[in-house]
Design a protein around this nucleic acid. Structure first.
Lengths: 244, 244
DNA sequence: GATGTTATTTTTGTATACAATAATGGTTCG
DNA sequence: CGAACCATTATTGTATACAAAAATAACATC
């Protein structure tokens, strides 16, 4: 297993930046998002502490926060692990995000100032550009930035905070359950259309747009056979029939 | 300042129950709900540790959890305090709960098994009885139990967890902003009506019922003059004009 | 060879010690 | 009398030590 992320971190530590729990949370979160830390990965406190050059106290705080963000699972007397959301939870997370982000978009329609509108416009273009040149990492970053902006500027900040959480969780499961052959989860027309509705001030259209966008995104995932694949029966059957 | 809740806790400790962070979280949460710990109350780690007979480590974990539940506020290098949600946040919390609980109720309609339906029925009756005999504490407990049951049995568990959080937060602000003269926030017809819609399987009616119920509940609060009351200008002006 | 048991190691839970920071109070100077 | 400054205290941040629990490995037994 390559441990490139560990090298990254150690380089950052050597560079002199003060390490705090927030730093660790960020690093682990992005590593999970990029699937450099696959689900189930053990995250022992001492190991993380040595990597980041801090003691267990701050690692523990970071892990607690990551657990609150649903990125890792923490059970008493057991090592923390990268969470592996089930397909059921994935569907439920998408449904929750449809509800919340739809409402946020509806509230936001017609209320955006020109500056924010321009920023989103820029991000939409950047996303399209990144997709055009095949830079999937950049495309995801820009797409995330768009939805993050919506969450941050939600007139209802309680809903905004919930949306921030849901965007992260859906991003993780998208990385997890992306259909094998699929190069990208880019839906070309959705973000520009949303922007138009927001600009025009049509809240219900914006809500519908978000709803359909997320529905389409969920449709791009492979949520059919995961449970069967993990099912022991299938593995047992395979062992007897295949492997010459 | 009376410290009756401290005595309660110390009695529980002497009784022999093992103290853990969960215990502290529960105690502080209910104390905040009952307004025995008013907003802004300082919660120093050592003091809590001595009260519960544990060290700062476990107190810290409890405080972190309470902060994640939006019960206390934790800022770096500063003592944790009981949170005082603003009227703006109160409105936003209610709006969020209307959205989420409405959806949960709609999802739940027609899907409840007979046992759960009977339990809710019993709670509705108990709530009415408690109100009739003027036992407000019991009435709140039963009312909370109803909404808690909805959250726990939400077909979408992600939404269910969000609802649990929102029910707690609205309960806190209800205690905080309850109109002075008001003895109770009981709306006699709402819970029975909801139960009927759930039993009949009419999701949209259940959603509307929840929506109106929460709207009415918010209407019972005094969300008008808080900010003006705390406003220094008013106090300054009063000092010059009044006080003979 | 499989299985159940015990020893060892790993890992977390808790308490405590020290350092760093914020809050407090007193003192001096204008 | 008030304001700025400094010393003191209170409180949190971090590291470490030891205890408890879980995971792992070794081993004996059948």
């Amino acid at each position: 297993m390559s441990h490139s992320w560990q090298e990254d971190v150690q380089a950052a530590v050597r560079a002199g930046g003060r390490i705090s729990d927030r730093f660790i949370v960020d690093k682990v979160r992005t590593a999970v998002l990029n699937q450099r830390l696959p689900p189930g990965t053990r995250l022992p406190e001492v190991a993380l502490g040595e990597i980041f050059g801090v003691s267990r106290s701050v690692v523990r705080k970071a892990l607690t926060r990551l657990a609150a963000d649903h990125v890792v699972s923490q059970q008493p007397n057991q090592v923390a692990r990268v969470r592996a959301p089930s397909i059921e939870e994935t569907r439920e997370t998408f449904a929750a995000r449809r509800l919340v982000e739809g409402e946020v978009a509806a509230l936001l329609a017609g209320r955006l100032d020109a500056e924010l509108l321009a920023t989103i416009d820029m991000l939409v273009e950047k996303e399209a550009g990144a997709h055009a040149r095949g830079d999937e990492a950049a495309r995801i970053e820009h797409s995330l930035a768009i939805h993050h902006l919506l969450a941050e500027h939600s007139p209802n900040r309680v809903l905004g905070a919930m949306l921030t959480d849901l965007v992260l969780r859906t991003s993780i499961v998208i990385a997890l359950y992306k259909r094998a052959g699929l190069a990208s989860c880019y839906l070309a027309e959705d973000h520009p259309a949303l922007l138009n509705h927001l600009r025009a001030g049509d809240g219900e259209a914006a809500r519908r747009c978000i709803h359909d966008h997320l529905q389409a995104l969920e449709g791009l995932l492979d949520l059919s056979t995961r449970e069967t694949r993990i099912d022991l029966m299938a593995i047992l059957g395979q062992r007897e029939s295949a492997t010459p």
